[in-house]
Structure formats: C-alpha cells, structure tokens
Simulated scan of single mutants.
Amino acid sequence: MPSTAPCVVAELTAGDAGEVLTVQYAAYLAEARRYGTTEIPPLRETVAELAADLERPDVRAFGAWAGARLIGSVRLRGDRVGTGSGCAELARYSVAPDAQGHGVGRALLERAHAELAAGDVTWLVTGARSEENLRLYRRAGYEETGRLVDSAGVELLRLERLSPWT
C-alpha cells in the first residue's frame, strides 16, 4: 500500500466542523455496530462542541480532502507538542467508510506525526475489538499501555508512541 492516499491533507478550522462531524459519524457508526451501542463519545459530540475543540490553542486538526469532499480527519490535542517533551492525544481519528483501505488513514497519521519532535509522546484509545484500527496503529509504532472502559461500557485500549519512530 502506498504511504499516502490520493488526497490532500490540510489543517481544519472551526468552519469545517459540520463536514468533520459528518465523516466522524459515518466512521464511528461501524464501531457502534461492533460494540452494540450508539452511546460512544464520538457519536454524541455536537457541531458546537467540535467547533469549540477546533478553536482550542492546544488542538491541531487535519483533514483529508478528495477534491471538495472531506474524507477523513484527526485531532492532535496537547500542550508543548513539537518540543521533545510534549504529550499529545490523537483523537477522533475518522475516515469515511468508502475511503477506508486506500491510505487515507495513513496520510492523516503521517501529517499528525509531522507535528511532533523527537521525544514527544502520542497516545490514543481505540476499541479492544477494533482489529483494523489496532493493525494500523501498531504498524505506525503504537504499543498498548493500558485498558479502560468508556462511558458507553466499551473496553478500550490505550496505545502510545514515542516520536520519532523508525
């Protein structure tokens, strides 16, 4: 698989919140089916909450565009990112279902990771039964560091990655 998809990855703004939420909902509906609940946090986020998150000074957000259509997004949340001693959460990572498997997710991860300096730690959570996600994250250098249960009762794995990873 090529390292980048036939898309353009660019920074997102609060003005993109509606499109981001559309992709997020579509992507996380598959997770909701897998876990038997629509109460997972990404499906409960509102446009106003998402727009507010995109305006935070400690959030960098990126979208994958195929022409005028947003097909994926990711948020990197954290202070001191890019300093070598920062810690950032990779959050609300979403790829439209019809765009999955074509390198879009990898392109988004590469763009988010480009914000990091050597020594920065990135962490994320994903469903314990989300095998496709786990394969992608492990290929990108993430390792399991813990388990927790979210507000919907879904078992999650916490994964971390030290930058740079080779």
Results as ranks from 00 to 15, higher is better:
27 A>F: 09
123 W>M: 03
26 A>R: 13
124 L>Y: 05
72 G>A: 02
142 Y>V: 10
139 R>M: 11
60 R>H: 11
55 E>W: 06
22 T>A: 14
132 E>F: 07
143 E>S: 05
91 A>H: 01
101 G>K: 13
115 E>D: 05
6 P>Y: 11
19 E>A: 13
53 D>Y: 06
23 V>P: 05
81 V>F: 02
121 V>K: 04
25 Y>G: 00
124 L>E: 01
96 A>T: 08
13 T>F: 10
18 G>R: 14
84 G>V: 11
31 E>N: 06
66 A>G: 01
53 D>N: 07
1 M>D: 02
54 L>C: 01
23 V>N: 02
13 T>K: 08
118 A>L: 10
130 S>V: 12
70 L>K: 04
34 R>I: 13
96 A>G: 06
44 R>K: 15
122 T>V: 15
151 S>V: 15
55 E>S: 12
157 L>V: 09
165 W>L: 07
27 A>K: 07
121 V>N: 00
150 D>L: 12
34 R>P: 02
71 I>S: 00
71 I>M: 10
17 A>G: 03
139 R>W: 08
99 A>K: 06
123 W>Q: 00
114 A>G: 10
69 R>C: 07
104 V>I: 15
6 P>A: 14
47 V>A: 04
42 P>F: 07
80 R>M: 07
11 E>H: 12
76 L>H: 01
37 T>Y: 06
8 V>S: 09
68 A>H: 13
122 T>S: 09
62 F>L: 11
100 Q>D: 01
121 V>D: 00
126 T>N: 04
158 R>N: 04
48 A>S: 09
116 L>C: 12
12 L>G: 00
25 Y>T: 03
18 G>C: 11
89 E>R: 14
127 G>P: 06
61 A>R: 04
31 E>T: 05
73 S>F: 03
68 A>M: 12
101 G>W: 11
152 A>T: 10
6 P>R: 15
47 V>T: 05
65 W>Q: 02
162 L>M: 09
62 F>I: 10
132 E>P: 13
7 C>D: 05
97 P>C: 03
117 A>T: 08
75 R>H: 05
63 G>F: 05
136 L>R: 05
38 T>F: 11
47 V>R: 07
96 A>I: 13
143 E>M: 10
41 P>V: 11
15 G>C: 03
61 A>N: 06
73 S>E: 01
64 A>H: 06
44 R>L: 15
34 R>W: 07
74 V>C: 08
138 R>E: 11
112 A>M: 08
45 E>C: 08
24 Q>L: 14
120 D>P: 07
143 E>F: 08
102 H>K: 14
151 S>M: 10
128 A>Q: 09
123 W>K: 00
165 W>E: 03
117 A>I: 14
71 I>H: 00
108 L>S: 00
104 V>N: 01
6 P>C: 09
121 V>Q: 00
34 R>Q: 14
63 G>L: 11
159 L>A: 02
99 A>E: 02
130 S>G: 02
30 A>C: 07
156 L>F: 07
63 G>T: 09
129 R>L: 15
62 F>G: 01
141 G>W: 14
160 E>D: 12
8 V>L: 14
163 S>A: 12
57 P>Q: 08
60 R>W: 10
69 R>E: 13
53 D>A: 09
63 G>R: 06
9 V>Y: 04
74 V>R: 01
145 T>M: 12
20 V>H: 00
